[in-house]
Nucleic acid binder design. Structure first.
Length: 512
RNA sequence: GCGGGCGUAGUUCAAUGGUAGAACCCCAGCCUUCCAAGCUGGUUACGACAGUUCGAAUCUGUUCGCCCGCUCCA
């Protein structure tokens, strides 16, 4: 069953996130800075819940995975070994005429074999046909007189004779510029090239670099995993779509080390495991997709890669990538550092560098997906109480109805688990009892106490921040039955429950 | 980074180059026995920096940010 058939608009969601304190633009008082976001009082709780559900499923509910917290700045050679220093940059060039942008290494050029003064024609890799046509039309020449050259081998002073891939005019291409997507800094007070360091662009390499230490301390046998949650930084060219692509973001990565040859089955296993987890935190199957990488889309060292995607309002986008990376990373570190990265199988006496399956998820993307999924506007018929999904974009509810905004979070994700509400605030005994319950429940969960305004308004406030349960203390509670009403966020129905049974009831609903 | 659009209160919107308003939200008080009731009062905004002008939310420039397209996404 889909949890939500309401199609949220990003405008409505962004507005609610700011209004209720989920997500703020960073440094907003100074005008903000592109690609960086802050999580407010509710957002930080929600994000912590996502991380602890993941951490619990990885390191607590199974004994073959241990945790790690490696530093953000590591030895620069880590990034040489991983290939990030060499490859983590894309030389790009623009066309002034068409406003197109191209990756320089994907553009090739047809150049006259003998006449250096002749026009040259650029084209997209493996698609020379348009350039060959232009040789006939524009240069009145014969394609046979031209040879293929990589764009990066064309000298800059010849760019005025170069015709771009999507134009017929020469001289419209800018020179290629390298974009290194790693944030650079200096270790120590002096800025010199010998102490350049990078903010990690992924948490994974911290795991690989500590593989040996972890292996020698925890006595785990292959297959086993190392899990890590932490910040990573990428100097994205163009952050977009709210928090979806940020320059500072948080990852939850597992490196699951396996025996070579079991890659395919382990990969398949982890894709299924992770999809189960997404279902559990509230992303239903109907809006989740798998993108199975094949052929050219696969990195050269990987034997399989499956992206897990979610239907965002701005398109179907990646939440997590699950890659079978062979032993590429450990081998690279072994070669670069000179330290052995081998595992000895005690039973078979085999020595090998383990292969790895890497489920790598973006916390911020999951948070955004959960917000999109949870957001819902409803219309409630004032007479019958019947609830219908609101029309998207409607300014107000139709005659005889009132509007309700509700975040239908899975209870394990909700920032607050319970709200405790005295029915009225000007009766001391009611308030006293409510405070007592609040303090009792607060020892176990994040609980909201609210005595302001009409009870209905307080319910709606909790709906809008996704609190799954409201506990209301009324006159019967103190005069009669020592019980409270519990109101459900989604159905708005109430049951009566003795205070003695309250904790067990709540735990059953909200704990992961 | 390029092109286009847009920046007024927490939100959604007003205001002819001349005192920045409203609704909702929020806060306080009164009232209130279960789904945004009512009454009274209150806080809060022209993204930033320059320029033109007697006077700028309004005109100009720059910049920052957001949205859309291109581009990119190991």
């Amino acid at each position: 069953m889909k949890a939500n058939d309401y199609e949220v608009t990003m405008d409505a969601l962004v507005s609610l996130c700011k209004r209720r304190g989920f997500i703020f633009q960073t440094s907003e008082i100074y005008g903000g800075i592109n690609g960086f976001w802050d999580y407010g009082p509710l957002g930080v709780e929600m994000k912590r819940n996502i991380k602890s559900c993941w951490w619990k499923s990885m390191t607590q509910l199974r004994e073959d995975i241990v945790g790690l917290d490696s530093s953000i700045i590591m030895h620069p050679r880590v990034w040489e070994a991983s290939g990030h220093v060499g490859n983590f940059k894309d030389p790009m060039l623009d066309c002034r005429e068409t406003k197109g942008r191209y990756r320089a290494d994907q553009i090739f050029v047809l150049k006259h074999k003998t006449d250096d003064a002749a026009l040259m024609f650029a084209y997209h890799e493996n698609a020379p046909a348009p350039a060959e046509k232009k040789i006939k039309k524009v240069a009145k020449g014969d394609a046979a007189d031209y040879a293929e050259v990589a764009l990066l081998d064309i000298p800059l002073d010849a760019y005025d004779k170069l015709v771009g891939p999507d134009t017929n005019e020469p001289g419209t291409l800018t020179e290629p510029r390298a974009f290194n997507l790693m944030f650079k800094t200096y270790v120590g007070p002096v800025e010199e090239s010998s102490n350049v360091a990078y903010l990690r662009p992924e948490t994974a390499q911290g795991i690989f670099a500590q593989f040996g230490n972890v292996l020698s301390t925890v006595r785990n046998k292959v297959p086993f995993g190392i899990a890590q949650i932490g910040k990573a930084f990428r100097n994205e060219i163009n952050p977009r779509n709210y928090t979806f692509r940020s320059r500072e973001f948080e990852q939850m990565e597992l490196e699951f080390f396996i025996k070579p040859g079991t890659d395919a089955e382990q990969h398949e296993y982890w894709v299924a495991e992770r999809l189960k987890w997404y279902e559990k935190v509230g992303l239903p199957e109907g809006r989740m997709h798998r993108d199975i990488h094949e052929g050219d889309a696969l990195a050269h060292y990987a034997s399989a890669c499956t992206d897990i995607l979610y239907d965002f309002p701005f398109g179907t986008q990646e939440l997590e990538g699950i890659a079978a990376r062979g032993n590429f990373d450990l081998t690279q570190h072994q070669n670069t550092s000179g330290k052995k990265m081998e595992y000895l199988d005690e039973e078979t006496k085999e020595r090998y560098i383990p292969h790895v399956v890497e489920p790598s998820a973006g916390v911020d993307r999951i948070a955004l997906a959960l917000l999109c999924e949870a957001y819902r506007e409803e219309w409630i018929n004032k007479e019958t109480g019947e609830v219908t999904t609101a029309e998207v974009g409607a300014k107000r509810a139709p005659e005889g109805h009132e509007a309700r905004t509700v975040l239908r979070f899975a209870p394990c994700i909700a920032p607050y688990k319970v709200a405790v509400l005295p029915l009225v605030k000007n009766k001391e005994a009611l308030v006293g009892k409510a405070r007592e319950i609040y303090e009792q429940l607060s020892k176990r969960w994040k609980v909201f106490y609210d005595q302001t305004g009409a009870i209905g308004r307080r319910y709606r406030r909790q709906d809008e921040i996704g609190t799954p349960l409201c506990v209301t203390v009324d006159f019967e509670t103190i005069e009669d039955d020592n019980a409270v009403t519990i109101r459900d966020r989604d159905t708005m129905e109430q049951i009566r429950l003795p205070i003695a049974e309250l904790e067990a009831y709540i735990a059953n609903i909200v704990d992961f």
